[in-house]
Amino acid sequence: MTHHQLAAETKPPLTPVRQLALRFSSTRRGARLARQLAVQQFTEWTGLPYDSDPARAVALVTAELASNAVRHGSLPGRDFRLTLLLLPDHFRVEVTDTRPERLPPPVPPQPADETSGRGLLIVQAYAGRWGRTVRDAYTKTVWAEVPLSTSGS
């Protein structure tokens, strides 16, 4: 996380125009359903088409965050929560899991020839901002904000 991202997280959040939160099973199927729901809600709330660049960015970001929650943040029998917020200039995706001690690195690693480990690089590339928050001893939230327009964040 850059200094800009850390500083921005301390500001009071904007009031969402729309908000939705649902729990999903910590399985591959749950991650897939979370991605599908995020894109559906994004297109419904914004009126942008499924094949728009922002909708594709929402799909990629949600897929990576949900996949990481399933792979690295789950405990047996515990779900993850997907929260979607439509704000005036961006769409925020939050994924909350049950492993607060397993924080993603503030800056994604730059893997050389590995075949995995590039998920946070994808999030960083498609999100205007992203970060992580631990509010209690039982959960952590990894969030990303996708700009509503492709003209920057």
Rank of each mutant, 00 (worst) to 15 (best):
Gln41Asn: 11
Ala127His: 01
Gln40Ala: 10
Arg102Trp: 13
Glu9Gln: 15
Phe42Thr: 01
Ala57Ser: 15
Asn68Pro: 03
Trp130Arg: 08
Arg32Cys: 02
Leu20Cys: 12
Ser67Ile: 01
Leu103His: 10
Thr96Arg: 09
Val107Pro: 00
Arg99Glu: 11
His90Met: 14
Gly47Gln: 14
Leu48Ile: 05
Val61Thr: 15
Leu121Arg: 13
Ala21Arg: 14
Ala38Gly: 08
Leu148Phe: 09
Pro49Thr: 11
Ala55Leu: 10
Ser74Met: 12
Leu14Gln: 12
Thr83Ala: 12
Gln124Asn: 14
Phe80Asp: 00
Phe24Gln: 01
Arg135Leu: 07
Arg92His: 09
Ala21Asp: 06
Thr10Gly: 02
Arg35His: 11
Val39His: 05
Ala63Trp: 00
Leu75Gly: 05
Gln36Thr: 13
Leu14Ile: 08
Pro111Asp: 06
Tyr138Pro: 02
Gln110His: 12
Ala34Asp: 01
Trp143Ala: 04
Leu85Asn: 10
Leu87Val: 07
Thr115Met: 06
Val58Pro: 00
Arg81Ile: 06
Arg99His: 10
Leu22Tyr: 02
Trp143Asp: 02
Arg71Lys: 15
Glu9Pro: 00
Thr15Asp: 06
Pro88Tyr: 06
Leu14Phe: 09
Ala66Asn: 08
Arg118His: 14
Thr2Glu: 07
Arg29Ile: 13
Gln110Gly: 05
Gly117Thr: 05
